[in-house]
Design a protein around this nucleic acid. Sequence first.
DNA 1: GATCACATACCGACCGTTCGGTATGTTGAT
DNA 2: ATCAACATACCGAACGGTCGGTATGTGATC
Lengths: 204, 204
Amino acid sequence: MATQTVIRDPEATRNKIVCAAFAEFYRQGFQGGSLARIVEGAGVTKGALFHHFSGKEALGYAVLDEVIGPLLQQRWLASLIGSPDPIGAMQQAFRKFIRTDIDSGHFALGCPLNNLAQEMSPLDPSFRGRIDSLYLAWREGIALALADGMAQGTVRVDVSPQSAAAFIVAAQMGIWGTGKFSQDGALMMQAGEAICDYLETLRA
Amino acid sequence: MATQTVIRDPEATRNKIVCAAFAEFYRQGFQGGSLARIVEGAGVTKGALFHHFSGKEALGYAVLDEVIGPLLQQRWLASLIGSPDPIGAMQQAFRKFIRTDIDSGHFALGCPLNNLAQEMSPLDPSFRGRIDSLYLAWREGIALALADGMAQGTVRVDVSPQSAAAFIVAAQMGIWGTGKFSQDGALMMQAGEAICDYLETLRA
DNA sequence: GATCACATACCGACCGTTCGGTATGTTGAT
DNA sequence: ATCAACATACCGAACGGTCGGTATGTGATC
């Protein structure tokens, strides 16, 4: 008889928990998300979860730091860094990710970061702080890219990079929020085209 | 002898419950909102609540229909109907209500309609339908006002009223969402000035 | 054999909901 | 005008279920 050794891989276990938690919180929200469903989705037990995390809050922080933060970085910031045409890059990003999320159906669940931001900011200062840092980095990335564009002559010099960045991020929140509540991809694309029009008005 | 104060006033009781529910759901969300806190806030008991409403869901629907709907109407639609300058009216509305909500502190709790939309749309089709109707009326009101503005020569004729309306409503969601997660009134005002700039680009 | 990495069993709290009961109107026959 | 018969309005204790969290057991690893 084969002696089946149970393979123990703490890092992989932790990772499975974080991924399952991301999926659960994305669909059900943080408060509505159930630890029982998370451990079920991860194929582990509560013992494993509480071995790796001190509680539900710590798990939520890990989701923000280890999943949502990197996702934001690669989706919205990577293509902006050092781009000669930040306006075109943002238009491309909006069109691309609206299309991507509609095709995958994820648009009906909204933006993971925005979901947590709206739910948890008034309730938990630690959540709010982490979320604030992520949105701040997002705005700063856009503002920096716009300022660079001004220096390179691709962006009008009479716009405020900070104000425009605040608005662009707010618009992203609103567009993904529109897709979520309406579950109407065409409506989301309409709003997406309108922000591309707005971005066009920022060109030099 | 003085007539004894009316002990039983079903309409007033129902009203107190709906108002308390609005406040509770606004602060805690629908799922996070507690019926115990609602009856406490209304100064009644659970018996009264379940006499007037079949359950938590029905109470949520009443809040949408009887509080949030009228609020939307008076805040955003009333000033648009038949306005000769819809763009100016919307700019005024954004500046006025951003100021109002910052002064009252309500901005930190976001937009009541958007809060419910983001939380409940993926979970409850009945909620989603009601919310969808409200946002649809909002978009249609804006689109109609823009079309009127085109006929009167105050709005550029090469913009799509539907697309612009979808974007303006999305921007409202994003701006109030920004105020909520950041709890930073100045940031919210920055975004508000940027949408006023965008609205300006729609002028004929 | 000590420690790590889990699994299992279970706890108390809180939730929305139910329900038996009571107090207050309302109606209509006498 | 009175009073039984009924409906409405409201109370508050209790229920079943789910929740996050914990205490303890067990096998793998070093």
